[in-house]
Nucleic acid binder design. Structure first.
Length: 289
DNA sequence: TACCAGGAGAGCG
DNA sequence: CGCTCTCATGGT
């Protein structure tokens, strides 16, 4: 006898589901009937939230909701994280603008593959590419009646069997050989993403940067969004611009110096602070999504 | 139209 | 080293 239910209700505080799912850390969530549909691992799920709880509906009975609690980081005390941010005007403004923003805990392979596709792409385009990739190479998943078909994120082995031309047809352009090379490296067992968690952040970063198409920035995204390494501080064009304007006005500052500043200035949850600065910069300077 | 987008890697001096 | 150029594609 299998105990299980297709509906889970989880009490939360300070959790803005919409901001969390759309702030540029994950690329697969779609608006649906006042909530969001997406895929976590090999499970399709429909999420909706009110002020006090998040409700999840799945297509198949769930006996243990740990996978969802882990992905959404439901047990994290956000206020404790925010208290570690430096007490200063820029961070107060960012926190005020991003109330309830959380960091997810994503699958490392999906995260590294997605961010390889992210380089010099707008978030809406990354979403399109990832969507095409899943549609064409991901296994179909059961969904609730009346919902659109859903697919798992394609495995490294599946993408390793594709050709560069086939991947380019998913509109990823020059990123195709990077994704293919990384898929083949993972599929061959030459690099095992499941063995990075115990490493130091520096060691884990240098492992990730062995993958083609993965430099410092993408490695830091994976360290932060998939493994939860808080010293990881992805420095993209938005965050660099924000740091320069907020902390180094009218001065020329190298990327290396920005990294050193971030590591020293933002405290034990620097990665979290980074995502607040990223989203703050985008919502205040970008008219569209 | 010109410029930009959650960059990385190769080639240069 | 650090700098510049290229890579593909689509949005603004």
């Amino acid at each position: 006898m299998i105990a299980g239910t297709t509906t889970g209700v989880f009490p939360v505080r300070d959790y803005d589901l919409t901001t969390t799912l759309t702030c540029g850390q994950a690329f697969r969530w779609e608006r649906c009937e006042g909530g969001w549909t997406g895929v976590i691992g090999r499970r399709w799920v429909w999420l909706h939230a009110d002020q006090f709880s998040i409700t999840a509906e799945t297509a198949e009975p769930v006996a243990d909701w740990g996978w969802l609690a882990d992905y959404l980081q439901l047990e994290l005390d956000l206020s404790a994280v925010l208290r570690t941010f430096p007490d200063e005007a820029p961070m107060r403004a960012a926190v005020a603008a991003c109330r309830g923003l959380r960091l997810l805990r994503q699958d490392p392979w999906e995260c590294v593959a997605s961010f390889i596709l992210s380089s010099t792409k707008q978030i809406c385009q990354i979403r399109q590419i990832v969507s095409l990739l899943c549609e064409r190479y991901g296994d179909p998943l059961p969904v609730l009646p009346t919902h659109a078909p859903a697919h798992a994120f394609p495995s490294p082995a599946r993408l390793a069997r594709a050709t560069e031309a086939e991947l380019r047809a998913c509109k990823m352009g020059f990123r195709a050989p990077y994704l293919l090379g990384t898929a083949r490296t993972i599929a061959s067992g030459h690099l095992d993403l499941t063995r990075l968690q115990p490493l130091s952040v520096e060691a884990a970063r240098s492992e990730l940067m062995k993958l083609p198409g993965v430099g410092r920035k993408i490695a830091d995204c994976v360290l932060l969004f998939a493994y939860g390494f808080q010293p990881a501080f992805p420095l993209d064009v938005w965050v660099m611009k924000a740091l320069r304007e907020l902390y180094f006005p009218r001065r020329r500052v190298s990327v290396q110096r920005l990294h050193r500043f971030a590591g020293a200035h933002f405290g034990p949850n620097a990665g979290y602070a980074q995502q607040y600065l990223f989203h703050y910069a985008r919502v205040h300077k970008e008219p569209g999504s």
